[in-house]
Design a protein around this nucleic acid. Structure first.
Length: 779
DNA sequence: GAGCACTGC
């Protein structure tokens, strides 16, 4: 142990005492970066052996007398033991004395509902491999359960981690910070988080919060998830694509790894479904801590939900007690519109009655962060002394249902609609549709009224509709998505038999077939459905297969630097900003970057200009503002670009450019686009209408935002947009002979079915090319 | 000549 005390004070954390604390081997390892010594200490060699002994670290002897964890046997601990250790002077995981703040937080932790059931939790945890845990909002499950697991798993002993997944990055980051505080450790040391672009964990990390997508990525290279001794899937009821795949995967891994424990945490609804899915796993339910919310329904269905919503909000403002209002609507335009209308109406009310002031705020995902922050401003004070209190009204998309929590909401107005993604496998198109929400969603919305005190929820539909028309749960994402990316991931994850892969809600066979077909055309899967080398490489990129394949092919066209930039820009939200009152100015600015051959090349021009400003030490923020570009999204594209570039370097994909003055500079890029987008091609039918290829076969128009000027008969497009009309967005002109040359399987004329005019046109192109080649040869 | 629910790698 002497070597440990020698080190005291040298590490990043000041070690005050307790050299006898367990884990010297670990500590030395983590600190040897300081002076480059003691990678291996022969006196401590025996401590590395416990791993090989079957039950070697469960006998308690690993924690010497005096250690807070003395007597703890892995997976045999009691809540009482943990309480004593938590109450101790020194932190069992770091050896440091506990801070004052620690004891203050500990007190509040013990008031959480979940605290009472710690022993019950441990009893179940000990006797089962998979556990379903159900806890309502406010139960403390997300912060406490992983800590209960830590005190029982003792992950510092077997060098395995406890992981807890979250659907969203912000949640992973903020919960990790909270738990680090609760455990009295520095974030990034014993407790860390891992999200895209940021890995805040270290050699000492024993508890890691991470996004579900991140764990899935890791699993692609470690099918056994061997770094973890316990995996906790939190918010499983949200049923993200990543969570669904992880659940199916973990079911398989659990069979191969009896030592791996799995906890699936969910909100109450549908708990039995999770239980059944996990072989009737035991279930532990913990009550939440929220205030009651009184629900009101309309007696008759409302014809116009926006109008009804406005009426309801004004009514609340006129007659209800103090408290803020949250109204759920479906999209940006609807929200901005309603904000204006309500503000005007309130102004009138103030003039005519003695009602208090009301601030109205919009809230949706694409709103810049500083404007999103405004919703947290306090409600306005009464307009005169002794007047009626003011309130704020937030008009929000679904973002306020799960992602953002606003305290102080007492009234919720729920018209019962949201925009939802749907996938039509027949024409391979994802689109957004305003649809009725589910009962689970309605309950979640109502719950937002009871966070700080008892609240009221006004549902703008009948009770009968709630009971009989709303579906119980929102369809999971996996049933509403194009699965090309997912299928490629599954193949990479080593799932051989997709048909029998045990997903909780298997997608439609047609959706699977479409994905397999698409991946086959992209040559990511061979004709037997096996992953090809190209497919394996493509799956390394956090991109849609189309983009990944294009990027991998791009060096052949001497433009991988440029395709890398374009790919990054296509992976972030629209970089062009178009404020409602300055559309003309914004469009004029956009024209500065216009490339006559299409939008992809225009994006590239924007990126080059942006980088030019950055590299010349200009003020990119100011420049973006002046040019109606989103600094946020351009920076994020730059971030994505760096990540993709690193992956390209790892797999030795050359980063090359054609000389800018070469006449083929842009042609090479357009040809490279075809290697990925050859299935997203539209051919001009008449002046306005284009038609997409093969069984997609849709009449589309070029989106009005396009800069494409030259009259191209053939275009590639990035996106199919279904709104009032069918549009293709982000389009670039191409030459049809490139299709025959670069995607010969897809554009095989002999096997071409349907679309006789397209077939005819392709035939003519092929014939022309043949003649030209013959002439060249004859010369 | 128009609109973009929300996440995630």
């Amino acid at each position: 142990m002497a070597s440990n005390s020698d080190k005291a004070g040298k590490g990043s954390r000041k070690r005050m005492s307790s050299p006898e604390i367990d884990g010297p081997l670990k500590r030395i390892k983590s600190e040897d970066g300081e002076n480059g010594e003691t990678k291996y200490n022969p006196y401590l060699a025996h401590m590395g052996e416990y791993k090989d002994k079957k039950d070697g670290y469960s006998n308690g002897s690993r924690h010497p007398e005096g250690s807070p964890l003395h007597g703890f046997a892995r997976r045999q601990t009691t809540a009482e033991q943990a309480f004593v250790a938590e109450d101790g002077d020194n932190n069992p995981f770091t050896g440091e004395p506990h801070s004052q703040q620690y004891f203050a937080i500990l007190k509040s932790r013990r008031n959480l509902p979940v605290h009472k059931q710690r022993q019950e939790f441990l009893d179940l945890y000990h006797k089962t491999q998979i556990l379903v845990f159900v806890g309502e909002t406010g139960s403390g499950k997300t912060t406490q359960i992983p800590q209960y697991v830590l005190y029982d798993e003792l992950p510092h002993l077997n060098k395995k981690l406890v992981a807890c997944t979250q659907p969203r990055r912000v949640a992973a980051m903020s919960v990790a910070q909270r738990v680090a505080d609760e455990l009295d450790v520095n974030l990034g040391e014993e407790v860390g988080y891992s999200i895209r672009f940021e890995d805040k964990t270290g050699p000492r990390t024993i508890l890691k919060y991470m996004t579900d997508g991140m764990l899935l990525r890791e699993a692609m290279h470690d099918h056994e998830m061997s770094r973890y001794s316990c995996i906790i899937l939190d918010e499983a009821h949200e049923r993200t694509l990543a969570t669904d795949i992880l659940m199916a995967l973990l079911k398989q891994v659990a069979k191969r790894r009896p030592d791996l424990k799995i906890i699936v945490m969910s909100a109450t609804l549908d708990a039995q479904k999770f239980q059944r899915y996990f072989y009737d796993a035991p279930l532990l339910a913990v009550p939440g801590r929220t205030h009651p919310v009184e629900i009101f329904y309309t007696p008759e269905p409302e014809k116009d939900y926006v109008e009804a919503a406005i009426r309801t909000v004004l009514q609340i403002h006129a007659v209800e007690d103090e408290g803020d209002i949250l109204l759920f609507l479906t999209g940006e335009e609807e929200i901005e519109d309603t904000c204006r209308k309500i503000s005007l109406e309130v102004d009138e009310m103030i003039r005519e009655t003695d009602c208090g002031p009301m601030k109205v705020y919009p809230l949706y995902g694409t709103l810049p962060p500083h404007q999103q922050q405004k919703i947290f401003e306090p409600a306005p004070p009464p307009s005169r002394k002794g007047g009626r209190p003011g309130r704020k009204c937030i008009i929000s998309t679904n973002i306020a249902e799960t992602s953002l929590t606003i305290d102080g909401i007492v009234y919720v107005v729920d018209p019962g609609f949201s925009k939802q993604k749907i996938y039509n496998p027949r024409i391979r198109v994802e689109s957004l549709l305003v649809s009725a929400i589910s009962r689970a969603s309605a309950q979640q919305r109502a719950g937002r009224a009871g966070r700080t005190k008892p609240g009221k929820c006004f549902r703008l539909y009948t009770e009968d509709a709630f009971k009989n028309e709303l579906i119980p749960q929102t369809y999971p994402e996996i049933l509403r998505s194009n699965l090309s990316n997912t299928v490629l991931e599954l193949k990479k994850l080593g799932v051989q038999d997709l048909v029998h892969f045990d997903l909780m809600d298997p997608p439609a066979p047609e959706t699977m077939m479409r994905a397999l077909e698409e991946l086959n055309y992209l040559a990511c899967l061979d004709d037997e459905g096996e992953l090809t080398d190209l497919g394996s490489l493509a799956s390394e990129f956090p991109l849609d297969p189309t983009l990944a394949v294009m990027l991998i092919h791009s060096p052949e066209f001497l433009c991988s630097n440029e395709i890398l930039s374009i790919t990054s820009l296509l992976s972030v939200p629209q970089v062009f900003v178009r404020p409602a009152n300055k559309r003309r100015e914004a469009d004029e600015m956009k024209n500065h970057f216009r490339h006559a051959d299409g939008d992809h090349l225009t994006l590239l021009n924007v990126y080059h200009a942006f980088k030019g400003v950055v590299n010349q030490g200009g003020d990119p923020k100011k420049w973006c503002h002046e040019h109606y570009l989103s600094y946020r999204h351009l920076s994020s594209a730059d971030n994505v670009r760096m990540q993709l570039k690193r992956i390209m370097e790892t797999y030795e994909i050359d980063l090359v450019s054609t000389d800018f003055h070469d006449k083929n500079y842009y042609t090479n890029i357009r040809r490279a686009l075809v290697t990925g987008f050859f299935m997203q091609v539209a051919k001009k039918e008449n002046n306005k209408v284009y038609r997409t290829m093969k069984d997609n076969n849709q009449a589309v128009m070029l989106h009005p935002s396009t800069v494409l000027q030259t009259d191209y008969d053939w275009v590639v497009y990035n996106e199919f947009v279904l709104t009032t009309k069918q549009y293709v967005r982000t389009v670039t002109g191409i030459r049809p002979e490139w299709l025959l040359e670069l995607a010969p399987t897809y554009y095989d004329i002999d096997s071409w079915e349907g679309q006789p005019d397209v077939k005819q046109a392709l035939k003519a192109v092929a014939e022309k090319k043949r003649r030209r080649d013959a002439m060249k040869a004859g010369r």
